[in-house]
């Protein structure tokens, strides 16, 4: 099954998840500086709901990828580039799973469980532990900035393919023209 494009489902997953990650990130940065207020509670809850949605969508996306496969690398690239791209994609998947998971763990440790969309209470992954909560908050922050850095690299690479190499890399992740 040698495909040349990502299928519609994969494209939808890619852009929806990218959008949600950007929203979660921006929201967190904005909320962090707010004084304690009703708005702050509300936006933190939205941040968690978006983050957990990312976790769920990434799991589905990986199931889909395992089932349907992904297009192989475009021909004519140096081997190191193909390897680097694969490595970056693995790292992105890893961080997309680890970051929200650590957020969930942190919420449990802080004694503030996640109630998804205000209706579904998620189980606590660890019991209440303030010190652990603080450590997980730091880890969450480190992972978030690591993800940001890797995404920047990933986007620069995509733009390099599109603008400098003028190949089909970006186009095969865009909707339309099959």
């Amino acid at each position: 099954m040698s495909k040349t494009r990502y299928d519609g489902v994969q494209i939808a997953f890619h852009w929806l998840i990218a959008l949600l990650i950007v929203a979660a990130f921006g929201l967190a940065l904005y909320v962090d500086d707010l004084p304690l207020s009703a708005l702050k509670f509300k936006l933190y809850a939205y941040h968690k709901w978006i983050g957990i949605s990312v976790l769920a969508l990434v799991v589905l996306r990986l199931v889909w990828r395992a089932w349907r496969g992904a297009p192989s690398a475009l021909p004519g690239q140096p081997a190191w580039q193909v390897k680097a791209a694969a490595g970056i994609h693995h790292l992105l998947y890893l961080l997309m799973l680890a970051l929200p998971l650590v957020g969930w763990l942190m919420s449990s440790a802080k004694g503030f469980p996640v109630v998804l969309f205000g209706v579904l209470q998620l189980p606590d992954l660890v019991s209440r532990n303030e010190a652990l909560g603080h450590q997980l908050a730091e880890l969450h922050e480190v992972l978030a900035y690591l993800l940001l850095a890797v995404v920047v690299l990933h986007v620069l690479a995509a733009l390099k393919h599109h603008i400098i190499d003028r190949d089909d890399t970006l186009r095969r992740m865009l909707p339309g023209r099959g």
């Binding site: 509300k42 809850a45 004694g111 503030f112 469980p113 209470q121």
Partner: peptide
């Protein structure tokens, strides 16, 4: 409850 999350 705070954003539907039980708080003690």
């Amino acid at each position: 409850k705070q954003m539907s999350v039980p708080v003690e």
